[in-house]
Design a protein around this nucleic acid. Structure first.
Lengths: 200, 200
DNA sequence: AGCTTATCCATAATTAAATATGGTGCTGCA
DNA sequence: TGCAGCACCATATTTAATTATGGATAAGCT
């Protein structure tokens, strides 16, 4: 990347700082008045920053800046809803079942829908998942052998290990006191991608 | 804060996600086309989010949204350093031992120092802490009976359960194949307040 | 039944913001 | 000396985006 002039540097910093403060980037006019120059001048600066690779810009888009961060991806984390445990028969993603929100690091995965669920029961203790733990789930309707999944079974959402063997798929609890669920139909809602547990 | 309806929730998530992806928030029109409704409808949703306190908005400002996260309006979630496992004798908080950063929800606790540590070994498996898990630790030099702590023992940082009984304090592994550590001097570095585990 | 809230519609008016065009001086440099 | 890059100006045009109005339907509450 080319080096920036003093002025260009300051403009870039202003855009970056403004965005951090307001959660949206400035307009050309705002930049102009900050540096007491005209919009035309700012156009020049912005173009320079663009061609030098420090700034991305979308055409015809108000405040359409993105400061290209060299190394650190300062992406703000996404907020996903945390659902309480679901009793049989009730809809899973009911709005009044939302117990709070959890921040999740933005991963490159991108276009998946995520949610969090509070685990109830001890059927997965052998896999280190305990009552009260929170699992973060990526919505998907299929998974692979060995994945820990959220499955809909008798209208109830449960955490289980998916077994997808030769004959047919079944669900396995990881506490030996529980039997594997083999002969019931079930539907996979999502795959557990992260576990969180809070200590007193 | 009032609870959000299902639709409002989805709108809020869209705004949050769009902003994370583009570094600037969406327009009303973009929200509208995402949900296949008209701008007028989005105005209603946005106003609802505003009055319920989940969203801030500047008047007459293009893309002037700010998603209010959790309790504090301006504080973004804290980034805390993730340290790799520490070999004996080496300084624990060395800068070149930082393996990354983890976002942590801002808690009311406030004035504590936190860090994250990658767990190595299987001495805590009976408590559901496995090799490769990440623990989030609040720095403190004492703890109570039953707390899971990071202790410095022979210049090495380990995860153990603190036992603070009548006679003296000692450290207990939660895998029965390991013995409790009773007669060695140790120093408590911090208390584990959260556990995270990523699944493939 | 009357009230509130949530969800939706269509359209006009207005303002915010980006873009286009064509300039002026200055500097360093080949 | 002439060219290239930088920093600046002024103004007009076009498009993006917000705001304003006024209304429709359904669900839930008292």
């Amino acid at each position: 990347m080319d080096k920036l002039t003093d002025k260009q540097q300051r403009v870039l910093e202003f855009i970056s700082g403004y965005t951090a403060e307001n959660s949206f980037p400035p307009t050309l006019k705002e930049i102009a008045s900050k540096f007491r120059v005209t919009i035309g001048t700012v156009q020049d600066h912005v173009n320079a920053l663009k061609t030098k690779g420090y700034l991305e810009r979308k055409k015809d888009i108000a405040r359409g800046f993105r400061v290209v961060t060299g190394s650190e991806p300062k992406s703000s984390p996404a907020l996903i809803p945390l659902y309480g445990n679901v009793a049989a028969g009730e809809p899973i993603f009911a709005a009044d079942n939302i117990q709070g929100y959890v921040t999740m690091e933005k991963r490159k995965s991108g276009h998946h829908i995520h949610f969090a669920l509070k685990v109830k029961g001890d059927s997965m203790t052998d896999s280190g998942i305990y009552d009260g733990d929170i699992v973060i789930v990526r919505k998907q309707d299929s998974a692979e052998d060995g994945d820990i999944v959220i499955a809909l079974l008798d209208d109830e959402a449960t955490v289980k290990t998916l077994r997808n063997r030769r004959i047919k798929a079944y669900l396995e609890a990881s506490n030996s006191r529980y039997k594997a669920i083999i002969n019931k139909p079930f539907q996979i809602i999502g795959k557990v991608i992260e576990l969180r547990r809070a200590y007193g």
